[in-house]
């Protein structure tokens, strides 16, 4: 007879693993990736390829040769970082810039903290913000880029938020919300289609990869805050629907604010975190010098997560 296996209870385990969760995030990103490839064509394929390959390769090299540990690339987290970084860059980005972004994201933001689970800031966002500060011109060069559908001119020019910053509300009054739902007039790959991101969001919820509280609290905060400002003075402040559908709010709130590692543990903490991101984003958009502030907002709130985890905890039974 074979020897019996003995271990402490519980004897069953969920089928999900870190790798399966991360793989689900990649799957949820696919609609957005497909849309971005359709609109930005070969350039976007190049950016995605450089970003994903360099992220995975860097993680492999660093874990194996610098940290001398078992490689952790099989957990798919480097792929997620790679895809998110690519979706956060303009389609005009040169390959070396993508590579620099990947080095900062994986090398600095992730591995120096000890790898997956230890990092304080979302790696893809750190990569993006590093590039934004280092190469401000390249990072706001929105075209023209020839895609597989439509002509290049349709997706060329400044982002709606950029237009609003430059020319005020009047400059964006001609924009149609339907266009924003399907595709934006300009912006980084991940900002193109709200529909694609929402499909990904629904997939993540259905697969129970994430819970909706962080994302929804960001949306509600952005909507309410911009709604109040817009009602107060519609000639100065852009309207709430515009603010929800443009820029990185959707991509950021669905895929980056919900990053396990850098978001709070409790439900209440998650809601506070989301409100913080929504508020900071809108403050930057209305009053800051940058047209968009989601990346900064998420990074700033990332830094408060340890405090939020201490201050906002789930209710304990019988206490």
């Amino acid at each position: 007879m074979n020897r019996l296996l003995v271990s402490p209870a519980p004897h069953l385990h969920v089928r999900t693993s870190t790798a399966s969760l991360m793989r689900d995030v990649v799957i949820a990103l696919l609609p957005t990736v497909i849309v971005s490839i359709l609109f930005y064509g070969w350039r976007e394929i190049m950016i995605l390829a450089v970003s994903v390959v360099s992220c995975v390769l860097l993680e492999y090299l660093i874990t194996r040769f610098l940290l001398k540990r078992e490689s952790t690339v099989s957990d798919w987290s480097a792929v997620v970082t790679g895809v998110l970084l690519a979706l956060n860059l303009p389609a005009t980005s040169p390959w070396w810039m993508v590579l620099v972004g990947a080095i900062v994201a994986i090398g600095v933001a992730k591995m120096t903290f000890g790898g997956l689970g230890q990092n304080l800031f979302n790696p893809a966002l750190v990569g993006r913000v590093f590039l934004l500060i280092s190469f401000p011109v390249a990072m706001t060069n929105w075209g023209p880029v020839q895609g597989f559908v439509g002509n290049a001119d349709a997706v060329t020019g400044a982002t709606p938020l950029g237009l609003a910053k430059e020319g005020g509300v009047a400059a964006v009054s001609s924009l149609d919300y339907l266009d924003m739902l399907y595709m934006n007039i300009g912006g980084s790959a991940g900002e193109l289609s709200a529909i694609a991101i929402i499909i990904g969001f629904i997939y993540l919820l259905a697969r129970k990869v994430i819970r909706p509280h962080i994302t929804l609290s960001i949306w509600i905060t952005v909507f309410v805050f911009s709604g109040i400002m817009w009602l107060a003075d519609p000639s100065v402040y852009t309207d709430p629907v515009f603010n929800l559908l443009t820029g990185g709010i959707l991509l950021g709130s669905v895929f980056m604010a919900t990053d396990y590692v850098t978001s709070p543990m409790s439900t209440a903490g998650g809601i506070v975190f989301g409100i913080g991101i929504g508020l900071i984003t809108m403050l930057i958009r209305y009053f800051g010098s940058y047209p968009e502030g989601v990346s900064f907002a998420i990074l700033i709130m990332n830094s408060t997560v340890p405090l939020i985890n201490k201050a906002f905890r789930n209710k304990k039974y019988g206490r």
Partner: peptide, 12 residues
């Protein structure tokens, strides 16, 4: 069903 898989980093 029951053999435990190897432990990896907490992803919080």
């Amino acid at each position: 069903q029951t053999v435990r898989r190897p432990e990896s980093n907490c992803i919080r």
